[in-house]
């Protein structure tokens, strides 16, 4: 690995100063599970690495007012072990849990998964589907943005020089609201999502959907919020007809590429499949407020 400098500031302000003042490229290190791979392959040659894990509050999950607040450097294992979060948003926990192996779970973070800006990031669709907001610190102070506004394209984010994500705010769920995340990979583990799909729904007492967000991953340059899919669900129970329209809407929202992980045709079809399957799980959970963890597809 090429030579680089390292600093581990103790405050957000010091981290901002380090990132903003770096002579060349500065990168944030939280879990490092993407950063170190890019460093080693030579795809990325930063001059400075800023380790944010020594900053108080960067690791941990707390409930604050109407929100869960997840520190940006919180590793997967802590997110999976947080029972209130898992009960509220099993789909978010599923998404996080699907990032890499158990070893990766010991380090990987939602912030890293997001800011690496891969359209295939597993934790991002359910977080967007939950209407989470990212708190960004930078030279101009703090700002709060919807998570979907962070990633602008493969490998690109809206973060400015000196900025980094400090924490995520996820609204506490309403009654009969739940979610699910499914992804498709060729093996049972250890692959990057070929397609990912998060479905977050709120039901009325009759079981009909009053609100929905469907987010696809790996089918376009960024995660896609499928408005048509939410429309297909809203006002409906999950009958065959609704599933069919959901499937079509999901497919219609896909603008994937053909690459080593899948073809355009395949990704498009599987997006529809996953939307149907994830919706079935989310509806079931919302109806029962169950908190069981489902695995991959």
């Amino acid at each position: 690995m090429p030579r680089v400098s390292y600093t581990a500031p103790a405050t957000v302000d010091d981290a901002v100063k380090a990132l903003a003042g770096a002579a060349g490229l500065a990168k944030v290190l939280s879990g490092g599970t993407d950063l170190l791979v890019q460093l080693k392959s030579g795809r990325l040659k930063p001059d400075l690495i800023v380790d944010t894990k020594r900053i108080p509050g960067m690791i941990g999950i707390r409930e604050e007012g109407d929100y869960f607040v997840i520190g940006a450097a919180t590793p997967g294992v802590l997110i999976s072990a947080h029972q209130p979060l898992e009960h509220a948003y099993p789909g978010i926990v599923e998404g996080v849990d699907l990032i890499g192996s158990q070893q990766i779970q010991g380090r990987c973070t939602i912030a890293g998964n997001l800011c690496n800006a891969s359209p295939a990031a597993d934790s991002v669709p359910p977080v967007i589907a939950a209407r989470a907001r990212a708190v960004v610190a930078g030279p101009g102070g703090r700002r709060e943005v919807p998570v979907e506004e962070i990633v602008t394209g493969p490998g690109r984010t809206s973060l400015q020089k000196g900025e980094f994500v400090v924490e995520f705010k996820i609204p506490l769920p309403k009654p009969r609201q739940s979610d699910a995340y499914l992804r498709f990979i060729p093996r049972t583990e250890m692959d990057i999502a070929v397609v990912g799909c998060a479905v977050n729904v709120t039901l009325d007492e009759s079981g009909a959907c009053t609100d929905a967000r469907v987010v696809l991953g790996a089918v376009a340059p960024t995660q896609v919020i499928v408005a048509g899919a939410a429309e297909a669900l809203r006002g409906h129970k999950l009958d065959e007809d609704t599933l069919q329209r959901l499937d079509s809407a999901a497919q219609a929202a896909c603008h994937p590429i053909t690459d080593k992980r899948g073809t355009i045709e395949y990704r498009t079809k599987v997006a529809g499949v996953l939307a149907r399957r994830a919706a079935a799980i989310a509806f079931d959970r919302a109806a029962t407020r169950g908190a069981t963890i489902a695995g991959a597809v």
Binding site: R187, T188, E189, M190, D191, I192, D259
Partner: peptide, 16 residues
């Protein structure tokens, strides 16, 4: 070569 690593050269894992 587009897949020179164990990420995209997919050997079977234990759960397969």
């Amino acid at each position: 070569l587009e897949n020179p690593g164990f990420l995209d050269y997919r050997v079977p894992v234990a759960s397969d």
